[in-house]
Design a protein around this nucleic acid. Structure first.
Lengths: 229, 229
DNA sequence: CGATCTGTTGAAGTGAGTCAATAGTGGTGG
DNA sequence: CCACCACTATTGACTCACTTCAACAGATCG
């Protein structure tokens, strides 16, 4: 793990109020776990978990965004999810990880020993319920993404992605932390198709784009597109 | 729910020894739940759950195969998974189902009230662990399928599917219960592409095909193909 | 024994990928 | 501080894997 020994002050200061809120909310949920956590920071693009790593820690995202992915032998990559402040990483009960996880931008995580978490599940039905709830939310998201990957067209995929991001942040003005390549690997497309589709949506008057800032102009139209209407 | 009042004897008798074994194994796992179960039977193609149904029961597949799916407004469908004897259905803790489930062939399920299950989670850490384990297994399968849907070619998809089915049954001779249309909706392809790809694999000497019976002749080659080598 | 559903095969079309050139951007060091 | 360099994004021309449309062949079932 490419772990940074010290957290740069500038990295922390750049975080938005929204991130802090999300962390605060998640802290309330995690309850008894708070006692045994350690902080860890990662530089942009640093690998947090590698496929095959032994899985002996649970992470919670404090600031920044993490991508979780699987790859084929020849390098083709599918990003299975983006994790945001408050989300958990490394819950799967396997001995070794079946997926990799990288920092998208600068990331700060809190880390718990997995054994402690498992003990808590046995002791506290509240923790068990929380983890079950989170697992099923993830499963639901995964199934939704399977529908996207298997059956949606490129414009529908991009629209779905932007709408989902807007729903998460609660704003129609997005500041995407990920590159076009990462969006492509998330949507099962190529960078070129993502780029072309974005300009196509812009020319149709649905978006305004300046690099990673994207503003959704016609939310209704975008919503219809994302659902295949 | 299109529920049959009586289970036809012929349906039951047609089940294989393998199915019965799977059920026996699953019964051992489910432990305390066994006391509150009811049996329900469904005819081939009968809907078991409809998107939007209230989710107040948990099912366990006793015999037969169930497909779980999501659809877009215009009818495009993605099958998110096939469930086999021993598998659970309807665990998600939402008030209403986000997915539909249909019987593929004749199906017998055992049904539990959801409230009872939730009570058990609170009382028994063993049940909590079991459900968590199952949820993460499903999540892992979903992520693997996302890699397939987003990044694999048609031959790789079909090979992956057949290898996975062979792994599940423990035999290289498969008797697929699902139609080409269902395979297509599971792999994000069309019926025609599934059909063409199967004949292509057959002509390459990797398969032998007679309708729903498929025999994997070259397991190594098929495995390589499924992993993108 | 016809009607209907499922599966196969062929021909033609197309959405997204590939290859390639160019234009922006951001970080680094002289 | 700015000039360079490497990286990211956009755009165009072309290709191709998969889809679509269509015809037909087997199964299955009343």
């Amino acid at each position: 793990m490419a772990e940074l020994s010290r957290v740069s002050a500038t990295i922390v200061d750049r975080r938005t109020a929204r991130d802090c809120d999300a962390v605060a909310i998640a802290s309330a949920n995690i309850g008894p776990l708070a006692a045994v956590q350690t902080m860890v920071a990662f530089a942009p693009r640093a690998p947090i978990m590698v496929e095959g790593d032994s899985a002996d820690h649970l992470f919670r995202i404090m600031t920044g965004v993490v991508k979780v992915h699987r790859a084929l032998a020849d390098g083709r990559c599918q990003i299975t999810g983006f994790l945001f402040p408050g989300d958990l990483l490394g819950l799967a009960p396997e001995a070794v990880h079946r997926h990799g996880a990288d920092a998208v931008g600068p990331v700060i995580l809190s880390r718990f020993p997995r054994k402690k978490v498992e003990q808590l599940v046995d002791v506290s039905p509240l923790v068990a319920r929380l983890l079950l709830r989170l697992a099923y939310d993830e499963l639901n998201a995964a199934h939704e993404q399977m529908l996207l990957l298997g059956r949606k067209t490129a414009p529908e995929k991009v629209a779905s992605f932007l709408i989902a991001m807007a729903r998460r942040t609660g704003s129609d003005t997005l500041d995407l932390p990920m590159t076009r390549a990462e969006i492509a690997d998330y949507l099962g497309l190529t960078i070129e198709t993502v780029s072309r589709t974005l300009t196509q949506l812009r020319k149709a008057g649905l978006l305004r784009i300046y690099r990673h800032q994207i503003q959704i102009l016609d939310r209704a139209e975008m919503g219809d597109l994302s659902e295949g209407n």
